[in-house]
Amino acid sequence: MAEIQIKNVAKTFGTYQALHDINLTIADQEFMVLLGASGCGKTTLLRIVAGLETATTGEIWIGGRRVDHLAPKDRGIAMVFQNYAVFPHMTVFENIGFGLRMQKLANDEVKRRVERTATLMHIEQLLNRYSGELSGGQRQRVAVARALAMEPDVILMDEPLSNLDALLRMEMRAELKGVLAESKTTAIYVTHDQVEAMSMADRISVMHQGKIVQAASPIEVYRNPAAEFVAGFIGNPPMNFLSATPAGNGKWTVAGETLDGPNATAPLQFAIRPEDMQLADTGLKATAKVVEPLGAHLLVTCDVNGTMIRAILDSDHKVKPGDVLTLAPQPDRVRWFDPQTTLAVA
């Protein structure tokens, strides 16, 4: 049992507040992804959980035990560092076995575990090399193997696959997920790659400027973003926004069209995903500006009343720049945001 609770954690470096009042509970065996742009505080939060950084305020609980005052080695965690931190004076074997030797495990047990994790990470042929003789991607896999070999209750990973090529990354993603599920490890996984986040996470915590904006399942984060930031950050291309003015009785005027919406009196932001609009007889009038064929789809960037939006259409449609399209938003996929608070409106 290793549930992680982060309670009211804040962190300031000098005068700079890197984390604001973070509250997050990660269930036992859950795979939690911290997703956010560079500099939003992901590494800082991970280091606080690991015990490498002390929170300015707040508490960390792991497995029902308050760990704030404990050294990293007493927290039952293993960590993969963003810049690998592979020991240069040891071979790959010694690196992976380092934590096991510290636990004073028997030689054959160390050997067994090192070889198993090395095979898992596809580095079994590199066991006798030194870190200086490895590529960045290989070093990164050594770092992951070193953490996995510990068989910890909690594993903290800081962008562990960032340096692999696309194919290997896809393969590793699936394997890592499988291994962690099998070993019943609770994981916090930091990334700024949303595809990685979507495909691996049980839950995603989207971070922005030191705050957690939304913590929910990948599909929830995608379909029902809690804030404009999430809507604009997740999805490739991200959600489209258009300003909407109330027309009374739950009717809204968006770019000259009247649409159904929530009951409110102040202007809102209308939001729709590019793939949730179809060509139809009635809808938003959009002038195509750029047409990018993507194989199965067409990505069309178009101008709606002076605002640029993107639509993903079936590639059977013949669209040229300059064409005027009529795009009908799928009603159940339309979302509304309050421009004042930037939060979603039900």
């Binding site: 490498l52 990293p72 080695k73 960590m79 560092f81 931190a85 380092f98 510290m102």
Partner: peptide, 9 residues
């Protein structure tokens, strides 16, 4: 730091 997380003081 890596050594600390791997069981070192």
């Amino acid at each position: 730091e890596a050594a600390w997380t791997l069981g070192c003081n």
